[in-house]
């Protein structure tokens, strides 16, 4: 079983996409699917940070890119 999650990626600019993940996927799995290194982002659910080993429990998330040059 898989499901869809709507993702907003904030990295200076803002982009949006929908990604399909396994029903029991964790945030870490989600980042791996998107090919994003977990050391470089925070994942926010309703504006609050979540531990990345937790199971995704929302169909709307924001990924805040926090590691940039400069």
């Amino acid at each position: 079983m898989s499901r869809k999650v709507h993702i907003t990626i904030q990295a200076g600019k803002i982009s949006e996409q929908t990604v399909e993940i396994a029903k029991d996927a964790t945030y870490e799995d989600l980042l791996n699917t998107l090919n994003i290194n977990q050391e470089t982002v925070l994942v926010l659910n309703g504006g609050n940070a979540v531990p990345l080993d937790g199971a995704v429990n929302s169909d709307k998330l924001t990924i805040l890119k926090v590691v940039t040059g400069g």
Partner: peptide, 29 residues
Amino acid sequence: PEKEVALYALVNSLPVDFSECPYAGEAIR
């Protein structure tokens, strides 16, 4: 760790800029 610095700024609602410099970074870094 860098991402914890960012999280600390976020949870304390500090006015910070997450944008990137147009000349950002030595390629090798």
